[in-house]
Computed example of a mutant assay.
Amino acid sequence: MSAPDREYLLEGVSINALPKVSLHDHLDGGLRPQTIVELADEIGLELPASDARRLQDWFESRSNAGSLVEYLKTFDVTVGVMQTAAGLARVAREFVEDLHADGVIYGEVRWAPEQHLARGLSLDQTVEAVQSGIDQAVAQVEAAGGFIRVGQLLSSLRQNPGQTLEIAQLAVRHRDDGVVGFDTAGPEAGFPASTMRGAFDYLASEWFPVTVHAGEADGLASIRSALLDGRALRLGHGVRLAEDLTVERQDDESTYVSLGLLSQWVKDREIALETSPTSNLQTGAIARWGETIADHPFDLLYQLGFRVTVNTDNRLMSGTSLSRELALLADAFGYRLDDLEAFQLNAAAAAFLPIEEREELLDRIAVGFDAV
């Protein structure tokens, strides 16, 4: 049984049924394999495998390379079938349907419009197509008596810094039509936020929220640039912030840790870390600490009071779901339902929404967890 279809239990409670918030989830990393097969057939795109099951296996095997660069190569396939308005709308609709099936009540879906122009769409048309799919799925959920809200995060590819301002302007242009924030994605090392400073200046002048991929494939200098040059309100992954922590000593009951100035700043200002445990393992983001989920610095960051959130990053490539990620952490670190609730409250508080809507999410999470 695949991760999206499997039920995960903790303390006898279905994690799938609990209300959850997803902040770091890539549209081109969350396609259904069968959808890829069908869309590829429509446009004549050759795939590495011709049926959905083998295609799923191909994605998962290629994604376990231990390198972000290798991990990103799988996106050539998914992006390839997302080049028409109909294809984008279908992928977005199914994306939201799958979030809802996993118990997500608020999700932010990030994607890079500049990657979807090969068949003649304009940047604005790509955003409109994705939003049409989102709107259709949300309406379907509501018609069935459910609840979900979804916002777009427009990503600019950091290896194309000359286009970042255009994508920033695109995001602001659609701020009243479903776009809630801006992101930078792609190869992190060698492309700090400082190379896109003009775009971030523009976004700041427009009071538009920003998250930046940092602390995944590069270290503290990348995080520092995301905060200083990018004015990031959240850090995409951010796990290598743990490099700024020093374990002074340990005994049978406690670990004593000192924080550097950078990590202290992130903690004190409650800047959310958008961690994605399985993906962080696959891309080598936590290689310094080990090779299993139990080696992930997530628990250390959580125990120290950082605003940690749990995410999937790319559900297809990692063969995962948000419920699965939470179950993996609970198994690795002995978490209880109260801990899982704390992660959802962290994410809701960090959502790129007006305060009133964030408070509504917080209430929905509290009610949902109290009901079990």
Score class of each variant (00 low, 15 high):
41 D>T: 06
125 Q>K: 14
314 N>L: 01
272 A>P: 01
65 A>K: 08
27 L>F: 08
178 G>E: 01
268 D>M: 05
319 G>K: 08
218 D>C: 01
269 R>T: 10
282 Q>V: 03
222 S>V: 01
10 L>I: 11
22 S>W: 00
200 F>S: 08
182 F>E: 00
198 G>Y: 15
245 L>M: 15
13 V>N: 10
357 E>W: 06
22 S>P: 00
107 G>V: 01
203 L>C: 13
42 E>K: 15
225 S>C: 00
59 F>V: 04
70 E>I: 02
88 L>P: 01
196 M>N: 09
91 V>Y: 10
3 A>H: 03
316 L>R: 12
296 H>G: 06
55 L>Q: 09
66 G>M: 00
303 Q>Y: 01
73 K>D: 10
180 V>H: 12
365 I>N: 01
345 L>F: 04
118 A>I: 12
301 L>R: 12
356 E>M: 01
188 E>K: 07
297 P>C: 01
139 A>V: 08
358 R>A: 00
308 V>F: 02
250 Q>P: 07
314 N>F: 05
61 S>I: 05
269 R>W: 04
94 E>T: 07
115 Q>D: 11
126 T>M: 07
76 D>H: 14
177 D>F: 03
52 A>E: 13
321 S>N: 05
218 D>A: 14
132 S>R: 14
97 E>R: 09
21 V>P: 01
21 V>Q: 03
288 R>N: 05
367 V>N: 09
